[in-house]
Design a protein around this nucleic acid. Sequence first.
DNA 1: TATAAATAGGATAAATTTATCCTATTTAAA
DNA 2: TTTAAATAGGATAAATTTATCCTATTTATA
Lengths: 144, 144
Amino acid sequence: MFSKACEYGIRASIFIALNSFEGKRVNPKEIASEIDSPVAFTAKILQALVKHKVINSVKGAHGGFEIEKNKINSIKLSDIVDAIDGNTIYEGCGLGLKACDEARPCPMHDKFKTVRDELKTMLESTNLETLALDMKGGDTFLKR
Amino acid sequence: MFSKACEYGIRASIFIALNSFEGKRVNPKEIASEIDSPVAFTAKILQALVKHKVINSVKGAHGGFEIEKNKINSIKLSDIVDAIDGNTIYEGCGLGLKACDEARPCPMHDKFKTVRDELKTMLESTNLETLALDMKGGDTFLKR
DNA sequence: TATAAATAGGATAAATTTATCCTATTTAAA
DNA sequence: TTTAAATAGGATAAATTTATCCTATTTATA
Ligand code: FES
Ligand code: FES
């Protein structure tokens, strides 16, 4: 469904949000350990998320990655997916035609579009705050 | 969403079904041309579909790929996806955890599972006959 | 101001997916 | 029985994704 990079990116963002609630910055090493991902690859993904303004980075001593507290509830899963995997999951044809075009649809179009739109709605209506709070309660996990 | 191989596999299966209705076998070259895919790679995918008994192959002169007419309406999209991409799209964790486990769910689990299950239902309730008949009517297309 | 801690980013490597090419085998028909 | 047409399958290559490593730059603090 999503690329590895995107999976790591979402997991990392949730972990960063969780820590940002407590005013704590985190570094790639800690993130990778908590989400069970390769650290250098994770660092690259964090760079991309910074570039897309999903998260913030602070360089130098006492630096790290964070998300402004008051922004956590406005960052949607779709923002992260957009930043890393782009929009093909939302807009692309399920059978891989060059574009999904109502005027010249593939045989799967009608049924696929329904599911794809629900995925889009789900990702656009789920924010980091919601996800992080579940974790805080100990109900959900970022690795297993 | 699906791999390229899977996209080609579905498109090829629909085209084969369409021809099998008229008792006509088709070869990789014709298939690749009609679904706009690389011919040798498509041939490999056809082999896999034969191995998984989604389609039939007939070797030698006058051979080609076909689907038994009375089987066309029992072959579901999920059969093709299973054969090529396996079951991670149905069973796997959306955030890439080693397994999707209700007892230790990822933060996206509840919302993701809903969408994933709908995708599964869609793929399991859509058969090749339905898809091919739409195409016969000229309402849908396998390339653009 | 020197040092240590931290992210940024370039270069490269490994793994996987996508794609091509060639030969072997099978089969219908001349 | 020979030939031509067709799928099967192995070997290889290209492209993309995933992953690692090293150096540059930035910044707080001693
Ligand atoms: S054209 Fe294929 S999903 Fe819309
Ligand atoms: S545990 Fe992640 S989707 Fe179920």
